[in-house]
Write a protein that binds this DNA or RNA. Structure first.
Lengths: 269, 269
DNA sequence: GCCTAGGTCCCGTAT
DNA sequence: ATACGGGGCCTAGGC
């Protein structure tokens, strides 16, 4: 009785007959469980582009959000896939093959997987509430610069983040110690030519109104020809790594917290 | 006896004891098989960035090329991963947990997966020689334009593909019916502002030497403000979809093949 | 829906 | 090795 109510994180079918597979797959999909199908299949994709994949043994992972990945023996990336939002149709074809069709109505795409043999089906009922934290992203660098503007230079006062411009977005915008506008473009990796052009676009637009506008790239390093390019375009570079930013941010937070606790100490007097 | 030599595409362990797992995983990795581990795990990533993922039930796929993906219940993308090139270390820790460490020497990155419970291990010995073909990429469009230059306009003669410029690459370069240089930028989706700026860079460089240089964007459609932008920069647009290109290319190929077979017919006379 | 820009992007290719 | 640009990129955020 308890076993009836108890969740099983995995249910396994070993070498199921093709004609039995829809009976396994359909209920799992409607119960919004994830499915793993390992077998000999071929795949046709049609949508933004088209592709065909001939017969071979692969692993197919279908998730409850309607995403699909087809993995081959090697390679980090799936050979075929669909992002979330698919509806599924599983059936046995007239020729006896198992067909799984994933259709994405939003972008009129379809993935057509045909199996001529299935080695394993795993129904997955996974519980996963674990938090995910990512450090040292460009977003972290931006936060650090806003919290500690002296990372850029003394006297810098940021006024806006993610400033929307007709020519695009600006990461951080502010005024330098002399009151001149300073546009900051942040990169967490080596600066490429393209990033410089991106900044140049923003800056040249703003220099039309005020030739004193400065543009600065913040990054851990510069790509090959980018130093010269920056000079030509009268843009600046300040070396700053994600790690440095993170440390500055954490230090600033500690300072703020201790200031806060002091206030509490004082108020509790 | 036959069973000893026969390959099994999948070998399954149901709820293996943690301490047994290294005995399963290590030989599989050294035999260069792929592995699927489903269980309750936590993950720490450290490298270009850092991340932590708290306990939860997930699916881990380790391939023989040294790539890893960790999939949660939902989402197309893995929550943690490593591209090919990892070496693996599996062990039971002093606290009794199973630890799988993937280290990428080339970029000094590491993925540290700890399991406190394993539901399923699948050893995968997949045979997959199926060919993969992708149609209608930007590359296909380029090929089509070079094979059928009239797709651009009558009298166009391409002279170079992938022309290297100090300012970057040019998709297709050639001369129009009047002998004026024509720079072609191909996009397979709607044209964005950035693509226009990219083309503008090439063209303005070349117009310094010859003001008659033309620049043209080839794409199935234009993004919002891009028509006006093209006009301002004196650039042109020709609508052409990947599908049209593909059809033209296939037609051209058929024509060429039939011409070839005619030649054979003639020579066999 | 479209547009914009980041990503531990990954990937191939050329230098 | 690094640099560059594509990708069925995907994803998040804004409009």
């Amino acid at each position: 009785m308890n076993s009836l109510t108890e969740r099983s994180p995995v249910s396994v079918w070993n070498f199921p007959k093709l004609e039995k597979c829809p009976e396994i797959l359909k209920p799992a999909i409607s119960r919004r469980l994830a499915l793993l199908i390992i077998g000999d299949c071929s795949v046709v994709y049609s949508g933004r582009a088209s592709s065909t994949l001939d017969w071979g043994e692969r692993l197919v992972l279908v998730k409850s959000d309607g995403s699909v990945v087809v993995h081959r023996r090697e390679g980090y990336e799936p050979v075929n896939w669909q992002p979330p939002g698919c509806i599924f149709d599983t059936s046995i074809q007239p020729d006896g093959l198992l067909r799984i069709r994933a259709i994405r109505p939003s972008s009129r795409e379809s993935l057509d997987i045909r199996f001529r043999g299935v080695f394993l089906i795993v129904e997955l009922n996974l519980i996963d509430r674990g938090g995910f934290l990512l450090y040292a992203s460009e977003e972290d660098m931006k936060r650090a610069i806003v919290a500690c503007p002296s990372l850029i230079e003394d006297g810098f006062r940021p006024t806006m983040e993610e400033k929307r411009q007709p020519s695009g977005f600006i990461d951080v915008f502010g005024l330098d110690r002399n009151g001149n506008p300073l546009i900051v473009e942040i990169k967490k990796g080596p600066v490429r030519r393209e990033a410089v052009f991106q900044l140049a676009r923003y800056v040249s637009k703003m220099r039309e109104g005020n030739p004193e506008v400065r543009g600065m790239v913040i990054a851990p390093s510069l790509g090959k020809g980018t130093m010269k390019l920056l000079e030509t375009l009268k843009l600046e570079f300040r070396q700053l790594s994600p790690k440095t930013c993170l440390e500055a941010l954490q230090k600033e937070r500690r300072t703020r917290e201790s200031a806060l606790s002091h206030r509490f100490d004082a108020s509790s007097d």
